[in-house]
């Protein structure tokens, strides 16, 4: 018995709009429905909260508290929609703090990567004895709460007049970001193939040259990730800024927000306060919308392996 099947083009049939799911998954169990409902609800709340934050930044305190879901109206009708932002920017010092933060964060992040990359390379690819032990020694630093170093660090920095000083802040930021960055970058360098390095060695390139011209470009993805993650971390850093900076002129955004908090509540300046929160949060949101994948994988990388 042989079934010859040469269907000479039957009129083209329409495929179903959606292929049927496997039979097992079709019977939605109540548990699953409940779980999915919860997941969507949780997600919706997150979006709602974000909406609330952005809309409240354009509202008067009365609007914030009596009409939390309405679109902002008052300041728009008065022709001054950015009134809260202007207040935070000018009266609460966020304008200057924004500038300080951008420069401090940018310079610190770049320097952190510049210092960490060679160290991570040295720990992973130079075949040094005890490199694993030293990697662990540096990585332990990630587990040390800043509270445990901040007191002697403050005293020491005060000795050399580097407290309440942006250069001192920069030094502290660079040093305290090293453990995470070195650890992150060792992961990237470890994953690079040996062959290219060996080929460069056979071509007579010096190790320094190999590092500069071959390994750094190869690890570019990792370096950029490290740069972004440090920028995010420092943008949001508050504790050290509270301890080390106590003059308005030196305030970073998070520090300024911290100082603004009590003043704003006394004056019921909730509009300006939320605008201040928005000034801290929205740049992160923009960055996140652009680079979500890189940020997520970078931050969760350490845990996966």
């Amino acid at each position: 018995m042989s079934t010859v099947d040469s269907r000479v083009s039957v009129a083209p049939r329409k495929p179903p709009r959606k292929p049927k799911p496997a039979p097992g998954s079709r019977g939605l169990s109540p548990l699953r429905v409940l779980g999915m409902a919860f997941v969507w609800l949780f997600t919706a709340v997150n979006l709602l909260v974000l909406y609330w934050l952005v809309s409240a930044a354009f509202k008067t305190p009365i609007e914030i508290f009596t009409k939390p879901f309405a679109l902002p109206a008052h300041w728009f009708e008065r022709g001054d929609p950015f009134r809260n932002f202007a207040y935070a920017w000018d009266n609460a010092g966020f304008g200057r703090a924004f500038l300080v933060t951008v420069v401090l964060v940018a310079v610190s992040s770049v320097v952190i990567v510049l210092v960490s990359a060679p160290a991570a390379y040295a720990l992973t690819r130079l075949g040094a004895r005890g490199a694993d032990g030293m990697t662990n020694f540096v990585a332990i630093g990630m587990g040390v709460p800043f509270q445990t170093v901040v007191i002697p660090l403050f005293i020491g920095m005060a000795e050399v007049n580097l407290t309440n000083d942006l250069f001192g802040m920069f030094l502290v930021y660079v040093a305290l970001s090293l453990p995470f960055t070195v650890f992150l970058l060792t992961g990237f360098f470890k994953s690079l193939p040996d062959e290219l390095e060996e080929a460069a060695a056979l071509d007579g390139a010096s190790p320094l040259r190999t590092f500069r011209t071959i390994m750094l470009p190869l690890a570019r993805g990792g370096l950029v990730t490290a740069l972004i993650l440090n920028a995010i971390g420092l943008w949001n850093e508050t504790l050290l800024a509270i301890v080390f900076l106590n003059e308005n002129a030196n305030f970073t955004l998070a520090r300024a927000l911290f100082a603004f908090n009590s003043a704003a509540s006394y004056q019921s300046e909730y509009g300006g306060l939320i605008a201040g929160v928005a000034i801290v949060v929205l740049p992160m949101l923009v960055l996140y919308l652009l680079l979500a994948r890189r940020i997520i994988t970078g931050l969760t990388l350490g845990a996966g392996k």
């Binding site: 495929p15 179903p16 292929p19 049927k20 799911p21 496997a22 039979p23 097992g24 079709r26 019977g27």
Partner: peptide, 22 residues
């Protein structure tokens, strides 16, 4: 039963298993 059947049927013995879970 790991894939759905969009058209037609599958039987095991006399049982129509097209829509049965695996």
């Amino acid at each position: 039963g790991l894939e759905g059947v969009d058209d037609g049927a599958i039987r095991i013995g006399e049982r129509d298993v097209t829509d049965l879970p695996p």
